[in-house]
Design a protein around this nucleic acid. Structure first.
Length: 891
RNA sequence: AGGCCCGUAGCUCAGUUGGUUAGAGCGCUACGUUGACAUCGUAGAGGUCAGCGGUUCGAAUCCGCUCGGGCCUACCA
């Protein structure tokens, strides 16, 4: 076995072998219980980031764990067509060739995008392979696959027939840069430093020097589309204007005054100019009062013809300057103030959103939202951490219709066809053009399909069942829906999770998954969000190359604490790579020392010595704890237990404890049967316990364990996941061994404290209060001598002048052999004396505090008996320790 | 404006339904190559658990307020 630990030497070898063995492929139907996770499909042309690595780690960990437990465990992979993102990429590529998509035409453009997809889509699989993902690639899906398109059409048609999808003209969030409408979720509100312009509007019929009113606005260019001025009905200042009208400066349009309680009396002057077609508030208000609207800004963000000849064609921001200049020269600009406010920006392209009126498809999700609220309330769907419940509640309770059409080319084209009959334009929603034609009673050729595509999230919302064959009733769907678990970052809770829940409930009548594990966002070592512009992005592929996939996986799983963002620093990954090295070398040691011994499928602890019984008991305990943590999705804690068990218990102690027995001729007086078998068996189970987190390393090492075939003939991936072994549990042995280890540690510390060289000769005196512990220690005298490297051990109280202490109920006395009679008071250095004094002082205060508590009637009567008892025992021990330390000082 | 989360060792974070000497990793100090591992070992230093008040026999943990940081939602022009 190579002394060097080099993950790259075996990681991808195993990934391809597993793939060849086909062990991640799932057969249906099956006698085994089902377990299923759907991958949150990454963008098909994207590169996986560390967040993906985190989610993949968690998904793979769970899938591998369930698979080892005997589940028919499916992790279904796939990718998302990511409408806007992908289209932008291809458009950027085209721009490099000096053309735009319209030059190419829709059909050619889509063809080109498919080509792009085919080229990049393989890299997603390659990256998941690098991470050790155990997906069933035979079931891979892409959101634009034909069968997924069928699911999209089916759901669209159904929702349309149920009256939940409608087409209409509304004010929508328009992204001029993208040239499409976007949903509310795709609008990011940013705080910007702007200006508040106060503009005087003359009141109609009050003459040249007559009354003017002042309105305040942040967007003066929209005044060109004003159709009214509003005030609050209770506002005394403006009541007299009721029934009158203002005249729009620059334009001269007559603007009736309307009174509406939506208006805030306190803001600005209490008067609001109403631009129905370019502001959501104004749109709503205009609707209530039957006011007309005027579109003065077009889809490119330029002023339209209706803005007037002076402004038409100007960019909306240039128009703002020009309007302000005009108003100033006309004397209508009263004042300009600095004003901090929130402006909606297009999430994808960054420019300010332009609210404008257009005809779009909308989905009324209010009914589905109510159901989605219900399943979280009644626990059918669990959000983890639970703190998301409130956010869920708030968002779904205030949900508005979802604008699902996009003016893009890359995506699911809306299954609606139009028939132009002169004036009459009729719309037919159907599964296919043929169906639509049949319905319309015309030849298909006479129909034109709606050019728009659906919001990408519309197809993603169907992912948990469209991937399993819906709308058909397939064996996969029956076996795996509802799926068990969803892991995703919280930033797409509404974009995706909520919509899957709504559509799952609507179409499948059940939740799409039972548990949603919301991870934090991965940040850099300083806690700053990773972004390309900041240059602090860590690439999982590079991390795998440098540290190995197992180390990265262990790091990410360890950092996944509920409700927190994840600061990732490479020191930590390096630390877990060192853990891999530790496992590697522990195995190397075991293999070099076990002779003919074999891994045991099960082991009867009867007749084993204390160290063996101890490590088996600990192993059983840790298997229990890890299982419990995995059941509750506490991967961080599961990892922590595994780490400390393997490094702390197994390497630091058990391997050391095994040495005297394994080195021939040094087994001493106490019999230590079957040490090699225990060592191998513990190693086997440890590797199996670790396998879901560190699949590569554990497989590589496990394959080398003699006798592993008895556990599983081919791979650790299918070996059973270790469970509690009640027969191994030995609390009294654990207590005894804890005392042994505490004694050893204390002796080593005393050596340092006494300023003795590591090789200085010592005699040790041990006296245990508990007879059982005393017996165990005596039985393990050889071990204790080996670990403490003392000359001899005397059983009984320490002699006068010994340096002594009490740990775990055992008095430890140390006498330096070389310095003569003792290592006691006479030879004690000033430093050591000072340390002891300080220690005694601390003990005194603690004893005092403890005594006070234990004499408190309230405490004695109200605290549980167990707590009082522990308190008493601790007090007794502290007192003994004090006596012992005092004796050391010769006091 | 409402809501959520966070503030624990130099750094990054754990800390389960309150239980009395608050843990880990990294970093730091001293010593150490004894035949798995220097990607290591042994021992150690380091914390008024942001602050104040309350509930309780007992608070890092529960409640209130203050300060500091982050995030989400919202039609204040």
């Amino acid at each position: 076995m190579d002394k060097r630990f080099e993950p790259r030497s075996y990681e991808q070898t195993w990934q391809s072998r597993w793939s060849e063995m086909g062990i991640f492929r799932v057969e249906v139907p099956s006698d085994k219980p089902s377990f299923c996770i759907m991958i949150p499909p990454p963008n098909v042309t994207g590169k996986l980031h560390v967040g993906h690595a985190l989610q993949s780690t968690v998904q793979d960990l769970l899938t591998r764990w369930r698979r080892m437990q005997g589940y028919n465990a499916l992790w279904l992979p796939g990718t998302d067509h990511a409408g806007i993102a992908t289209q932008l990429m291809v458009e950027r590529q085209l721009a490099g060739e000096g053309i735009n998509r319209r030059d190419l035409g829709r059909e050619k453009f889509i063809e080109r995008t498919w080509e792009w997809k085919r080229q990049y889509h393989g890299s997603i699989r390659r990256q998941l392979d690098l991470l050790g993902a155990s997906c069933d690639w035979s079931r891979e899906r892409f959101t634009l696959d034909a069968d997924l398109n069928r699911a999209v059409r089916e759901s669209f048609v159904r929702l349309y027939r149920e009256g939940l999808i409608t087409r209409g003209e509304y004010l929508v969030n328009w992204s001029p840069a993208l040239g499409t409408a976007v949903s509310d979720l795709e609008v990011e509100s940013k705080t910007v430093q702007g200006k508040l312009y106060h503009i005087a509007y003359p009141v109609e019929g009050s003459g040249p020097d007559g009354e003017t009113i002042v309105v305040a606005t942040t967007r003066p260019e929209t005044m060109l589309g004003d159709t009214a001025v509003a005030f609050h009905p209770d506002d005394e200042r403006y009541r007299h204007l009721h029934g009158k009208a203002a005249l729009l400066p620059l334009v001269g349009r007559r603007l009736p005054f309307v009174a509406d309680p939506l208006v805030d009396k306190e803001f600005g002057t209490g008067l609001v100019k109403i631009t129905p077609f370019h502001d959501p508030f104004d749109f709503e208000l205009a609707r209530r009062h039957g006011l007309p609207g005027i579109s003065v800004i077009d889809r490119e963000g330029k002023m339209s013809a209706e803005a007037g000849a002076d402004f038409a064609g100007l960019d909306r921001f240039a128009a703002r300057t020009k309007v302000v200049d005009r108003l100033r020269s006309e004397g209508s600009l009263v004042k300009v103030e600095d004003h901090v406010h929130n402006v909606g920006h297009s999430q994808r392209s960054g420019e300010p959103i332009e609210p404008l009126v257009s005809t779009q498809w909308f989905c009324d999700v209010s009914g589905m939202a109510a159901q989605a609220l219900e399943v979280v309330r009644d626990g059918r769907l669990k959000l983890l951490p639970e703190s998301w419940d409130k956010t869920w509640e708030h968002w779904l309770s205030n949900i508005r219709p979802w604008c699902i059409s996009r003016q893009l080319w890359w995506g699911h084209q809306i299954p609606a066809w139009y028939l132009d009959d002169g004036e009459d334009r009729r719309c037919f929603v159907a599964h296919s053009v043929e169906d639509a034609a049949r319905e319309a009673g015309v030849e298909p050729g006479r129909l034109t399909q709606d050019p728009d595509v659906l919001d990408t999230w519309f197809s993603s919302a169907l992912w948990p069942f469209s991937t399993l064959g819906w709308p058909d009733d397939t064996p996969d769907l029956r076996a795996f829906y509802p799926t068990d678990f969803l892991v995703t970052a919280y930033d797409i809770l509404f974009f995706w999770v909520a919509r899957m829940v709504m559509s799952g409930l609507h179409f499948m009548g059940d939740v799409p998954f039972r548990t949603v594990h919301l991870t934090g966002l991965v940040r850099d070592a300083e806690g700053v969000k990773m972004s390309k512009t900041k240059g602090n992005v860590l690439d999982p592929e590079e991390l795998v190359n440098e540290y190995g996939a197992d180390a990265l996986r262990f790091t990410l799983a360890s950092l996944d604490s509920p409700g927190r963002d994840i600061p990732l620093n490479t020191d930590q990954i390096a630390g877990y790579r060192a853990f891999g090295n530790k496992i590697w070398n522990a195995t190397r040691f075991a293999l070099s020392r076990v002779g003919e011994a074999q891994v045991q499928k099960t082991l009867d602890p009867a007749g084993l010595a204390a160290p063996e019984r101890w490590i088996l008991s600990r192993l059983s305990g840790v298997a229990h704890e890890v299982g419990e943590r995995l059941e509750t999705f506490r991967f961080d804690e599961a990892c922590s237990r595994l780490y400390h068990f393997f490094w702390g218990d197994f390497c630091d102690w058990y391997i050391e404890l095994s040495k005297p027995a394994l080195f021939s001729g040094e087994s001493g007086d106490a019999p230590r049967p079957r040490v090699a078998e225990v060592l191998l068996t513990v190693l086997d189970r440890s590797l199996r316990l670790l396998h879901p987190v560190m699949p590569f390393l554990t497989e590589e090492l496990w394959q080398r364990l003699p006798g592993h075939e008895a556990i599983h003939p081919t791979t650790i991936c299918l070996a059973p996941y270790p469970q509690v072994e009640p027969a191994w549990s030995a609390p009294e042995i654990e207590a005894g061994m804890d005392a042994l280890m505490a004694v050893v540690t204390r002796v080593r510390a005393l050596r340092t404290e006494m300023g003795l060289a590591p090789k200085a000769k010592l005699d040790l005196h041990l006296a245990a209060q508990d007879a059982g512990v005393g017996r165990l220690l005596a039985e393990q005298e050889t071990l204790i001598r080996f670990l403490t490297r003392v000359e001899q051990i005397a059983w009984g109280p320490a002699p006068e002048g010994a340096r002594r202490d009490v740990v775990a109920g055992v008095e430890v006395g140390v006498v330096s052999v070389e310095s003569g009679v003792s290592g006691g008071a006479q030879e004690m250095s000033a430093d050591e004396r000072r340390r002891l004094d300080k220690e005694l002082e601390k003990l005194d205060t603690e004893i005092a505090r403890s005594e006070e508590r234990l004499s408190n009637e309230q405490f004695l009567s109200k605290a549980p008996a167990q707590v009082v008892e522990t308190g008493r025992a601790k007090l007794a021990e502290m007192k003994e320790r004090r006596a012992s330390l005092r004796a050391s000082l010769g006091a």
